[in-house]
């Protein structure tokens, strides 16, 4: 099968996955307990007004009609209106989504940069004290849930040393307004970003480190490593240009899975650090029966994971010249 056919097949698969995910999402949220209209009653609506509101939201339609209608809305990029905020969900979620991406993107970037380097060196110096210590450190990091890492960092760097702000994204507030540069382009923002991003980096460090190490051990057994050494190339070149370069391939696949856990982790990390992102918003929305908002947040998180899986598959084909297109 050629590259093109592979990509086409993979795109079809992507569409099916999206459809299935969307269906799960729809079913889940229709099962949600609690009357979604209770909120309107509390606001002192008359029963007639309430009926009217339900009709507006389409909640009185049969389920399959609602399903089609919701799908149609999503395709238009319309997530409906938030029950609590009384604003279009898209307006609420767009900024928070960016905030989450910036935070978790930074965390993953650091986790992978540190993990790959660390893991490569651990594999290269196998049986050394560095390797043994490294394994223990990584396993301890892996054993700590995100919120625990966050609390430890908070206690040390905020409560005890007072080096960093404890929560939020900006000292002055206004975290949800302004353009991209205004939101993320300041030292104050970086100071706020540091601890939550570090929390994520520590929490997601283990997978790339351990995987890198074990694939390094495999690759180091390969004949070509011996040849590269025999060629008189410096150790650094053999380690990074050849051994590490070959070991990185399987990490690309895991990257997608890591993004998945990072999406979940954002929920926790944002709660610990009061980060105005999508994860925290989702928890609030679920607690307040704000379906449209919770659904949108859930949908976006899932989309990121599904798209990352897709990108990872394609990247793998690009990075490894040997790959057969199944």
């Amino acid at each position: 099968m050629g590259l093109r056919a592979y990509v086409v097949r993979r795109v079809l698969q992507l569409i099916v996955t999206f459809w299935a995910f969307f269906t799960i999402l729809f079913v889940l949220f229709r099962m949600m307990p609690g009357d979604p209209t209770s909120m309107f009653i509390m606001d002192g609506m008359t029963p007639e007004q309430r009926e009217q509101r339900i009709a507006e939201l389409g909640l009185n339609e049969p389920l399959h009609v609602q399903y089609v209608e919701y799908a149609r809305q999503l395709l238009r990029g319309d997530f409906g209106q938030s029950f609590i905020y009384r604003d279009p969900v898209i307006d609420i979620i767009a900024v928070r989504f960016m905030n989450t991406i910036v935070l978790m993107g930074t965390a993953l970037l650091f986790a992978y940069l540190i993990g790959i380097t660390f893991g490569a060196i651990m594999g290269w110096w196998r049986d050394s004290r560095f390797e043994r210590g490294g394994i223990i450190v990584t396993l301890v990091a892996r054993s700590s849930p995100e919120f625990w890492v966050g609390i430890v960092l908070l206690s040390v760097f905020v409560f005890w040393l007072g080096w960093f702000p404890s929560s939020g994204m900006r000292t002055t507030g206004g975290e949800l307004g302004g353009n991209f540069a205004a939101r993320y382009g300041s030292v104050d923002f970086l100071r706020h970003l540091f601890l939550p991003a570090l929390t994520g980096a520590i929490a997601y460090l283990a997978t790339p480190t351990l995987l890198m190490r074990s694939t390094m051990l495999d690759v180091l057994n390969a004949d070509f490593i011996e040849i590269k050494k025999a060629e008189g190339l410096p150790e650094r070149t053999v380690l990074f240009k050849h051994a590490a370069r070959n070991s990185v391939l399987p990490l690309v696949t895991v990257m997608a899975i890591a993004t998945g856990s990072a999406m979940g982790g954002s929920v926790v990390i944002e709660t610990v650090f009061n980060w105005p992102g999508m994860g925290r918003e989702m928890v609030n929305a679920v607690n307040n029966n704000d379906y449209p908002l919770a659904m949108a947040a859930f949908f976006l998180m899932g989309s990121v994971v599904i798209i990352m899986n897709f990108v990872a598959d394609l990247a793998y084909v690009y990075l490894d010249p040997r790959v057969e297109y199944e």
């Binding site: 998945g260 999406m263 979940g264 929920v267 926790v268 989702m282 859930f298 994971v305």
Partner: peptide, 12 residues
């Protein structure tokens, strides 16, 4: 694999 673990668990 496309379903984010924790958010799914929260909703469920």
């Amino acid at each position: 694999y496309g379903v984010p673990f924790l958010p799914f668990a929260i909703v469920l």
